[in-house]
Design a protein around this nucleic acid. Structure first.
Lengths: 245, 245
DNA sequence: CGCCCGTTTGAAATAATTCAACACCGGTGG
DNA sequence: CCACCGGTGTTGAATTATTTCAAACGGGCG
C-alpha cells in the first residue's frame, strides 16, 4: 500500500483551516523519508532534541512518561494521520517518549523544513495551532478521566475516544479493532494489569467488547458511551459525527 | 497598581520567539478592556462560544471540567501572565470552564483582533504556538501525576510546579503563598477534601509547608522536589532556573 | 518440547473514599 | 454583644476500589 503522507497531511490540515493553493502546493513539496517500524520502536526519547517531524501513516503509537518508581503513564494514543511531533516543532527538547505500539509506517519530515513552511504560510501555521489545541483538549479530557472517573468508566471512555478518532469510522456501526496488551491499557488508564484483566472480563461478559488473541473488537454503542461518560465535544470535530443521518 | 497587559503579553511572547519591531508594535496596539473580577467568577463556560481572549494580570484562575456524577476536575491552574484563551483562539466552542480562584484582574482582547494579528505576524503566531505547546506539556505532566503518582507525591509535585511557574520566583529561597481551599486542592489533585486535609496536616508536621487561614506558605526545597518527583524539564524554560548561580 | 510473554485468578493488603459528627471562624442580624 | 449561620477544615471508623503478591495458565515460537 502506498498512502501518501503529503496527501494525508494536506487533508488533515485542510480540515483545520482554509489553505491557499500555494500553501497546498508547498505542503505537497515537503521532503520526507518513509520508514517501516517494528512494534515498540522509539521515535523520540524524553530529554533528547528532536530533529524531524513524523507523520503516522499506519499503525498505532503512544506518548508516555516514566515516573520515579519506574511506573509508566501513557499520555496519549496516536492513530494514523496524526503528526507525532508538532509538539517539538517549537520546543527544543522532548518532554516525553514516543514509541510505536504496533508495526507502523511513518514519514519523517525534517523539522527545519516544517519551520520554514510555517513562517511563510500563515494558513498552515494556523492549521497546526488548531491541531495542537485539539491535542490539548484531549489531554484535558484525559486529566479529567484519571482524576475523577473510576476504572470502569475510564476504560469505556478510552474505547469511545479511540473509536471516535479512528479514521475507519466513516459510517455508523463499524466494528473497531484495538490491538493492545493489558499492560499497555493499564498504563493508559492509570491502572494495574491485574485490574485491567478483570475489567476486560467484565466488559466481555456484558457484551460490550469481544476478544480474540490480544485484539478487542467492539462498536461505539450507546451503552458504551453511557458507561464511559463520553461526550465528543472535546474532540472539536476531529471525529466523524456520532449520529450520521 | 497598573500592570500593562500589552507589556505583559509582549514580554511573555518575546520569551517564546523572536519578534520583529513591527510585531511588537502591533502587539502593543491590541485593543483591550480591563476587568476586576470577584473570586469564583466564570470567564468561560464549557460548550459556549468564546469571543474574547483574557490575559490574567493579577490573581489565580482555574480550568475545570465536570463529570457525570457531579465531580469536578481542575485541569490546570493559571497564574498572572497567563493567557486564558489561546485555547479558544482557533476553536469555536470551549470544552472546559474557566473560573477565577481569587480576586483577579484581567484584560479582555477580542478574539477577532487576535486572529487578525496572528495571520499578519508569523512571529506572533509562532510564539503563541509555543505557548500552547508548553500548556500541552504541563497537561501531560498532570496526566502522569494523576495516573501514576500517589496522593502525597501529587501534592508535593503540584506545589513545586506552582512555585516554579510563579512570577514572584525571581531569586532562590523565595516564600511562596498559595491561597486555595482544600476542596479546590482536592479537585486539582483528583483527591477528596478529607484526604487533602490529612495531607496538609502531614506536610505541615514535616515542616514542608506552613499554614495560616487558608493560605499555605512554603519554599521550593530540595525535600519538596524529591517528595514530588519533580523535574522541571517539562516546563521548557517557562520557569526561573532552579539553581541560579 | 520447553520457554517466554501476556493473561487469569484468588487472597491479602493498602490507599483513598465515604459517612458522620464536630470544631472553627468570620460575617450578619437581632 | 451575643446568637446564629454557612462555608471550611478536622477527626475517627467503616467501606471500597484498586493494588500487591503469588501462583498457575495458555499459546505462539524457536
Amino acid at each position: 500500500m502506498s498512502v501518501d503522507s503529503a496527501a494525508l497531511l494536506t487533508q488533515r490540515l485542510s480540515r483545520r483551516a482554509a489553505l491557499t493553493s500555494q500553501e497546498l502546493e508547498e505542503l505537497g513539496n515537503l521532503p520526507y523519508s518513509r520508514r517501516r517500524l517494528a512494534p515498540a520502536t522509539y521515535l523520540v526519547r524524553e530529554g533528547e532534541p528532536v530533529t524531524f517531524c513524523a507523520i503516522l501513516l499506519e499503525g498505532c503509537a503512544i506518548r508516555h512518561k516514566i515516573v520515579r518508581d519506574g511506573g509508566r503513564q501513557i499520555v496519549s494514543l496516536c492513530v494514523p494521520g496524526d503528526a507525532l511531533d508538532f509538539q517539538s516543532l517549537y520546543l527544543e527538547y522532548a518532554d516525553h517518549n514516543i514509541q510505536t505500539l504496533t508495526y507502523a509506517t511513518v514519514d519523517l519530515i525534517p523539522v527545519s523544513a516544517f519551520r520554514d513552511l510555517t513562517s511563510r504560510c500563515p494558513g498552515v501555521a494556523k492549521a497546526i495551532s488548531k491541531d495542537i489545541l485539539i491535542d490539548c483538549a484531549m489531554l484535558r479530557e484525559q486529566v479529567t478521566s484519571l482524576g475523577r472517573r473510576d476504572g470502569r468508566t475510564r476504560f469505556a471512555h478510552a474505547l469511545c475516544e479511540f473509536a471516535a478518532r479512528s479514521p475507519s469510522r466513516l459510517s455508523q456501526d463499524v466494528e473497531h479493532h484495538l490491538t493492545i496488551t493489558q499492560e499497555q491499557m493499564g498504563d493508559l488508564l492509570g491502572l494495574t494489569t491485574v485490574h485491567v484483566s478483570r475489567l476486560f472480563k467484565d466488559f466481555e461478559k456484558n457484551g460490550l467488547i469481544d476478544r480474540n488473541r490480544g485484539t478487542i473488537t467492539y462498536q461505539l454503542s450507546d451503552e458504551l458511551i453511557e458507561e464511559g461518560d463520553f461526550n465528543s465535544l472535546y474532540l472539536h470535530g476531529d471525529e466523524v459525527p456520532l449520529r450520521s443521518a
